[in-house]
């Protein structure tokens, strides 16, 4: 291949550049807040996409793991005076550890049973947070979480600071996800999704592969939760609800399940759509429900998936043309160029 940058690199660079310029174009703190929350949603959806989109396991407890991360930061900083950044790092670790425990039990189950089982785990996490007053303050919620303290000259106390913090973490998250999905491990996730029996016959250990995807995905959830805690600075049990999982799922599906940038595009796009439909508030699912159904029926690859397919077709056509120009064999069928 040539040294030209990949379409993924180009697309991410364009997205990152426009996101970095966004606060310059609109200093409106409200818009910055919307975007910063969208980035948190994107990070969470990125994690869900790894386990559901790549490895094919629909984890419906995802919001529970986001909540574990968020509450780790909240409880450690408010009740135990742990410095924010240490709590931030621990949030990912705690979520991943919980993910490992849940995954060990749940991933032995077949796909649909796994979905139900994780739905129940999600309920247990939600009810646990709601009822365990001593640890989580229950329905009252956890208040006065400190804002992320600045690192060196960089301050995260302002809206703009929060925005760039979320963007930075998301950028690192996407880059890491790119490394993961492009690696052999990432390929093994796809192999499991496309056929567990076949993957096993090829020598993959399905349990270990799925568990790897699950733990990484819950680590992302934990970090997303930690970002959320530093941004909103108030936590209630509602963040663990299954509707939050469904939000992340919608982001991933609309953007493109099993694509790298899909969850990011979906999260940002849908967050603005939610803003546009703010009059509907709680009823937004009246619009988004059918949208999701139509999307999964007629547009299952999502925005990024459709773009990728289109790009791949064009590249294939170009390659074919180039091949035909290089070696014009009269009468040769075009299908020969596929090999």
């Amino acid at each position: 291949m040539s040294a030209r940058p990949s379409p993924f690199a180009l697309a991410s660079f364009a997205l990152l550049a426009s996101a970095a310029l966004f606060p310059v174009l609109t200093p409106n703190p409200y818009y910055l807040g919307v975007m910063a929350l969208a980035f948190v949603g994107a990070l969470s959806a990125l994690g869900l996409n790894l386990v559901a989109g790549y490895a094919g396991q629909l984890n419906l407890a995802h919001a529970g793991f986001v909540a574990i991360g968020a509450y780790t930061v909240g409880i450690l900083t408010v009740d135990h005076g742990v410095p924010f950044w240490i709590a931030f790092a621990l949030a990912g670790v705690v979520s991943a550890a919980a993910g490992a425990a849940v995954g060990l039990v749940s991933l032995r189950l077949r796909g649909d049973t796994f979905a139900i089982f994780t739905l129940c785990v999600g309920f247990i996490l939600y009810l646990g947070i709601e009822k365990w007053d001593g640890l989580t303050r229950g329905v009252v919620g956890l208040m006065d979480i400190p804002a992320p303290p600045g690192i060196g000259p960089v301050s995260f106390a302002t809206d703009r600071g929060q925005y760039y913090l979320a963007l930075g973490v998301l950028a690192v998250g996407v880059w890491l996800m790119r490394r993961i999905t492009a690696s052999l491990v990432g390929r093994s996730f796809l192999a499991i999704r496309n056929g567990e029996a076949l993957a096993q016959a090829l020598g993959l250990n399905p349990m270990r592969t799925k568990l790897t995807a699950f733990v990484i995905s819950t680590f992302y959830a934990g970090i997303a939760g930690a970002l959320y805690a530093g941004q909103v600075r108030f936590l209630g049990p509602d963040i663990a609800r299954e509707t939050r999982t469904f939000d992340a799922l919608i982001f991933a599906v609309v953007g493109g399940m099993g694509t790298l940038l899909g969850p990011v595009v979906g999260a940002v796009g849908m967050s603005w759509a939610i803003q546009a439909l703010q009059g509907l508030q709680d009823y937004r699912m009246v619009v988004f429900g059918p949208l999701l159904v139509l999307c999964i029926m007629f547009f299952p690859a999502g925005i990024v998936g459709a773009l990728e397919a289109r790009f791949a077709r064009r590249r294939a056509a170009l390659a074919e043309k180039r091949l035909a120009e290089a070696a014009p064999v009269p009468g040769a069928a075009p299908r020969g160029s596929h090999a």
């Binding site: 796909g111 429900g289 299952p300």
Partner: peptide, 15 residues
């Protein structure tokens, strides 16, 4: 794939 049915079912539930 079954994953799509499950997502569609969830979408109907939300709707």
């Amino acid at each position: 794939p079954p994953l799509h049915d499950m997502i569609a079912a969830i979408a109907l539930l939300l709707f």
